[in-house]
Computed example of a mutant assay.
Amino acid sequence: MSYDLPRPAGRLLLTPEDKEAPARVRRLRLLGLGEHPEPALDAFAAHLAGRAQAPYAMVNFIDQRRQFFAGLRVPDVRPLMSPDEEAKPEMGRLMERDHGFCPHVVVRRKALVLEDVRDYPRFAGNPVVDEFGIRSYLGAPLIDTTGMVLGTVCIADTEPRPWGRSGLDTIKAAAAELVVRVERRKTDGFWL
């Protein structure tokens, strides 16, 4: 089976330069996205999390400084911790641009599969690994009909996951479906 996995790198995580960010911000404003939560996108994320049996799913719009989860599904109940463990922060709607893996998906303009982030030194040092316990990630870009990458749709887990070809196909199909909904919303004025 062959699908796009990043190659291990012998260096620490570097958030990629995003030359399209100013144009993306203008496009997102035109579409009315990236500034407030959308219940329809929360429902989309929840459906995707359920379908993938993953605790986290997001619809993420990215600007020059931050990421905004307009659609967000996080675990209802945090896992039990041993007495010597420190409490992990809760994931919210905003995240710095240098956190997570979505900025890489946006700049690469293609899906990213991380079955175990610890296998990739470039990604293992990401703050979401330590702060939220993320161990696996699967994300695809939201590319609209103008060719602009608006953001991502992604799922993540606190355990390594063999996403495989079916996982990759699922996330790519979810991204394509969501782009259609986003563009219909612009013309029809409501989410389908």
Rank of each mutant, 00 (worst) to 15 (best):
M1I: 04
P127M: 04
P16A: 09
R165E: 09
A57R: 05
H47Q: 15
T146W: 04
G164R: 14
E17A: 12
R51P: 00
K186H: 14
P79S: 05
L80Y: 04
V105C: 08
P162F: 04
T152W: 01
R26W: 02
P127H: 02
R118W: 02
R73K: 15
D76T: 13
I134V: 15
M95P: 03
P141F: 05
R118E: 04
G164I: 08
V25A: 11
P75L: 11
R27T: 14
F132K: 04
I171C: 08
V153T: 11
V128K: 03
A49E: 08
A45E: 15
V59E: 08
T146V: 09
V129R: 10
I171Q: 05
L5V: 15
L192V: 10
E115N: 12
A23C: 05
V113L: 09
F44R: 15
A111F: 01
L30Y: 05
C102R: 06
A156D: 01
L48V: 15
M58G: 13
Q67T: 09
A87G: 02
P16D: 07
D84N: 07
C154P: 02
R27I: 12
P141D: 06
L72K: 15
G50C: 01
L138S: 12
R29P: 01
R73T: 14
P22N: 00
G133S: 02
A54T: 15
N60I: 13
F69R: 14
P8K: 11
E177C: 13
P127W: 05
A46F: 13
F101W: 11
R108E: 14
R184E: 14
R66G: 06
E159W: 00
N60L: 06
M58D: 07
D63W: 02
F68A: 04
C154T: 07
P39S: 14
A49D: 09
P83W: 04
W163A: 02
M58E: 13
P79V: 08
D116V: 02
R29E: 11
A140R: 03
L48Y: 09
P141E: 07
W191N: 11
R97I: 15
A175K: 12
F132S: 03
K110A: 12
E90K: 11
L114R: 03
D116M: 09
C102P: 07
D63V: 09
G167P: 01
L28I: 07
E177F: 02
Y56I: 14
H99T: 10
S166C: 00
L142H: 01
L12F: 05
P22F: 00
C102A: 14
L31C: 08
P162L: 11
A57H: 06
M81D: 08
Q67I: 10
R24T: 14
Y137N: 04
L150Q: 01
L5R: 15
C154Y: 00
